[in-house]
Simulated assay, not measured.
Amino acid sequence: MTLDLATTAPRIRVLSGVADAQIRQLADVLIDCVEGGASVSFMLPLTPERASAFWRRVGEGVARGDRVLLVAEDAQGIVGTVQLLLEMPENQPHRAEVAKMLVHRRARRQGIGALLMQAAEQLGRERAKTLLVLDTSSAEAERLYARLGWTRLGVIPGFALLPGGEPCDTTYFYRALA
């Protein structure tokens, strides 16, 4: 029997730690997104060393319990990721922030972003969070969040820079968890 892996749904899972092989794969996803124009805190050129250093810091946060790291994997490895930032001020124990929702360009338009976001929402509920917040500079991501039931709050013009240096707007969303 032949299995067409291109149509097999990706596996979403929580990483309890971040090994070197995972850091390399996560760095590849981050670099691909930045090279594709995503405004996700990094400027061009994004070297593998800088991307790997970022994921090592994320791994340290995972180890401390400050954040949860989810990944989407297909037959070739990690193709997407999202983080749930849990470390909030003491007057905000009920909320978490969704950060760095990234999907490699080779795996887009396959529902991976939606699967990652649904998993992040479920993890928020499991951790007794009643409110999630996020920001994005991507019109494509805005459509995804709206489709998933997130509420758009508004836009801050010129909030960040695109990887090539051009200013971009940022849109804020929230999701009340039932």
Rank of each mutant, 00 (worst) to 15 (best):
R67S: 15
R67H: 12
V68L: 13
V68H: 01
V68P: 03
V68D: 03
L69D: 02
L70A: 10
L70H: 04
L70I: 13
V71E: 00
V71Q: 04
E73N: 09
E73R: 04
E73D: 11
D74N: 11
D74S: 12
A75G: 08
A75I: 05
A75D: 14
G77A: 08
G77Q: 03
G77P: 08
G77H: 02
I78A: 06
I78L: 11
I78G: 07
V79P: 03
G80M: 02
T81S: 15
T81A: 12
V82N: 04
Q83S: 05
Q83G: 02
Q83T: 06
Q83Y: 04
L84I: 07
L85Q: 13
L85A: 14
L85D: 11
L86Y: 00
E87D: 15
E87L: 14
E90G: 11
E90L: 14
N91S: 12
N91F: 12
Q92E: 14
P93C: 02
P93W: 01
P93A: 09
P93S: 05
H94W: 07
R95A: 12
A96G: 11
A96Y: 05
E97D: 13
V98W: 01
V98Q: 02
A99R: 13
K100F: 09
K100G: 04
K100L: 09
K100C: 02
K100M: 14
K100A: 11
M101T: 10
M101H: 07
M101K: 01
M101C: 15
L102C: 01
L102F: 01
V103C: 05
V103S: 03
H104W: 08
R106S: 15
R106L: 12
A107T: 01
A107Q: 00
Q110E: 11
Q110M: 14
Q110A: 15
G111R: 03
G111P: 00
I112M: 06
I112W: 04
I112V: 15
I112T: 07
A114E: 11
A114T: 05
A114L: 07
L115F: 01
L116H: 01
L116A: 01
L116F: 04
M117Q: 08
M117I: 10
M117N: 12
M117P: 00
Q118F: 05
Q118E: 15
Q118V: 09
Q118G: 11
A120L: 08
A120N: 04
A120Y: 00
Q122V: 08
Q122Y: 06
Q122E: 15
L123G: 09
L123F: 13
L123P: 06
L123S: 12
R125A: 07
R125I: 10
R125L: 11
R125V: 07
E126Q: 14
E126Y: 03
E126G: 07
E126D: 15
R127E: 08
R127Y: 01
R127D: 10
A128F: 09
K129S: 00
T130S: 15
T130E: 08
L131Q: 05
V133Y: 05
V133L: 14
L134K: 07
L134C: 10
D135R: 14
D135Q: 14
T136G: 00
S137M: 13
S137A: 15
S138C: 10
S138A: 13
S138K: 08
S138N: 11
A139S: 13
A139Y: 10
A139G: 14
E140F: 02
E140W: 09
A141H: 07
